[in-house]
Design a protein around this nucleic acid. Structure first.
Length: 288
DNA sequence: ACCCAGGGTGACG
DNA sequence: CGTCACCATGGG
């Protein structure tokens, strides 16, 4: 277990095991972390924070006692990742992912931000997704500062719902603009993302699928990255290629076969997904 | 000019 | 149920 203390407005968290800040920020799960100084600056849950890792020590600034527990939860530091790593080490097909992926933590992000982020992500690339989310935040998020840096929190549902289609288009969201507006409206109108935490994954998934711009892949991302469903397993083009090569000797598997693989990965399948996904991307896996 | 990017929608069979 | 053209946009 780790040790956390507050020093001069910073959180110093030491004794971390299986934690890699850079991989966690770069693996494509969150879109608002940028390289800064020797670490990363990010905006999450309405707060801006500078994070830096030195060995098994993570430093967060600014961070007082009031925010410490929140960041520990966000970075998923309380979870024991040795079970995940053990599973990868003991499987010949998964073992090759570890040199690239070991230490990734699946962040616990804010549900509405995650929902909008992955609606934007459809048929899109990470650089442009980040740009669109940044533009939307600049348009109607709360302005704040760190160092000489100005940053904007991710907008609340009301703010996004009140943007015009044209404003959303100006953020580079393209044909997804009406989906974003409609889904934000639905959340304003009583669709409770938080309530999904109390349901089982199948029910939560079904309800997410009723939202505009949310299909199976986006729903699984919201479940995994923001609602605590560590067994959700998002399948995108990269995961299709990776699963095909790792488990099916390069041949296209049926949906049932993929399900069997996910079942075998167990209750932490979603975390495994992130390790496989990052490995596949770093190696430009299977561009055939 | 063409293809791809963490896909989803709506129409049609 | 499954398939498929189409969707806006920037970068290779």
């Amino acid at each position: 277990m780790f040790l956390a203390e507050i020093k001069e407005g910073k959180a110093v968290i030491s004794g971390l095991e299986i934690f890699d800040l850079e991989r966690s920020c770069r693996c494509g799960q969150a879109f608002r972390w940028q390289r800064y100084k020797r670490g990363f600056f990010g905006v999450a849950r309405g707060c801006g924070v500078y994070a830096e890792q030195d060995g098994d020590v993570l430093t967060l600034e600014p961070c007082g006692e009031d925010r410490l527990a929140m960041w520990i939860d966000y970075f998923d530091l309380k979870r024991d990742y040795s079970a995940v790593v053990g599973m990868f080490e003991s499987d010949e097909r998964l073992r090759i992912c570890l040199p690239e992926s070991c230490g990734i933590r699946v962040f616990n992000q804010e549900p509405f931000e995650t929902l909008i982020s992955f609606i934007v992500s459809a048929n899109n690339n990470i650089k442009r997704i980040s740009g669109s989310l940044e533009a939307m935040s600049r348009l109607c998020g709360k302005r704040n500062r760190y160092d000489d840096r100005v940053f904007y929190s991710f907008p609340d549902p009301e703010s996004i719902a009140s943007l015009s289609i044209e404003q959303l288009l100006d953020c580079g969201t393209g044909y997804r603009a009406p989906y974003i507006k409609e889904t934000a409206k639905a959340v304003c109108d009583g669709f409770s993302l938080e309530a999904l935490r109390d349901t089982d994954i199948a029910d939560a998934r079904r309800k997410l699928l009723s939202l505009k711009g949310v299909g199976p892949k986006v729903a699984d991302c919201v479940l995994l990255f923001s609602l605590g469903f560590s067994d959700a397993f998002p399948m995108d083009v990269w995961m299709n290629r990776a699963v095909r090569h790792l488990f099916f000797n390069g041949e296209i598997p049926s949906a049932d076969s993929i399900n069997d693989v996910v079942e075998k990965l167990g209750p932490l399948a979603g975390i495994a997904q992130q390790y496989i996904f990052y490995f596949a991307r770093e190696n430009k896996f299977g561009k055939d």
